[in-house]
Simulated assay, not measured.
Amino acid sequence: MLRRGGRGRRPAEGASAEEARESVLHTLHVWDGHLAGLGAQLLYARLRLLRDLRTHLDHAYREVSGGAGEALATYRASLTQGLNARIAAGEVPEIDELSAGIVAALAEVQANEFERGQCLVGPHRDDLVLALGEMPAKGYASHGESWSFALGLKLAAYQLLRTDLGTDPVLILDDVFAELDSGRRERLAALIGDCEQVLITAAVADDIPKSLAGQWFSVTKGEITAYPVAPDE
């Protein structure tokens, strides 16, 4: 979403500096409108998705981690201060209000944008903040907590798709058990026990809890061998 003043209505040859400036501002105003309209639609979709994920996220994180803390996901927007605070609190404003908020925020930072030569407002400037309780996950979460959070997000998305589709999607867990301690492994296995289709990969068969029943395949030197139970190492 770039806004460039060099395209659109060009100043007439011989125009004064003020006329040239007005022409550039007019072009930026047009691009601001496009950014606000499309950006608001994208932002609205993101906020609704995050709202629906939150309940599943905290539940999945607590189940995998054994109840260690609260997993939070907050949207950090680049709009006006008041609107940013409402969004951070979990509110999902309507598209028209978000569009107006983008326009207002663009007006606030226009001088700064001219100075820096880049757009400072819009969905492309936003971020998702992940936290464990009051502490940001980035830089503070342990290895186990980080993996529990990542799995919480994946399982939250799975549960949301399950609800929306009315059927079980395929759940893929690519070598995640190797990153978990024994307690988290067993809790994850219990959590996915009712999933209809799960594909799990592991370099070491013993990393996968024996409580997970299903078809096993071993890949060795390009050859695939099927086993009814976990193969011996």
Rank of each mutant, 00 (worst) to 15 (best):
T220C: 03
G117K: 05
T163C: 06
T225I: 07
P231Q: 04
D127M: 04
L98R: 06
T201P: 08
A73T: 08
K138P: 14
K154N: 10
G6D: 13
V103F: 08
E196Y: 05
E19N: 07
L153E: 12
K154Y: 11
L160I: 11
A141I: 00
H26I: 00
V92H: 09
S211I: 02
G82T: 12
I224M: 04
G122C: 14
H26K: 00
I95Q: 12
R185E: 07
S148C: 15
R54Q: 13
Q159S: 13
L38I: 01
W216C: 07
D206F: 12
I224R: 07
E145A: 01
E113I: 01
D206A: 10
V30F: 06
L151R: 13
D232H: 10
G66T: 12
L98V: 06
A189H: 02
L79W: 14
F114D: 11
G69I: 03
G67F: 06
F217S: 01
I224E: 14
G5E: 13
R184E: 00
S78D: 14
R76F: 03
L98T: 08
G6N: 09
G144F: 00
D168C: 08
G183V: 09
A230V: 13
E179C: 00
G222L: 10
Q81A: 15
T80Q: 04
L120N: 14
G66W: 11
A15F: 00
L199I: 06
A60V: 01
L128Q: 05
G133A: 01
A100Y: 09
A178G: 04
V30H: 10
L28S: 00
V170M: 12
R185C: 06
E13V: 05
Y75K: 03
L28F: 02
A230W: 07
G101K: 02
V176C: 05
R162T: 04
L53Y: 10
T167L: 08
E113S: 02
E134K: 03
E19Y: 02
A104Y: 07
Q197S: 14
Q197P: 13
S142E: 02
E196V: 02
Q118F: 13
T163Y: 01
A111F: 03
G82R: 11
W147L: 08
E134L: 02
S148Q: 09
P123L: 02
K210V: 14
Y140G: 00
D194R: 04
E145N: 04
G122N: 10
E115W: 11
W147D: 10
D58M: 04
D194T: 07
E223I: 13
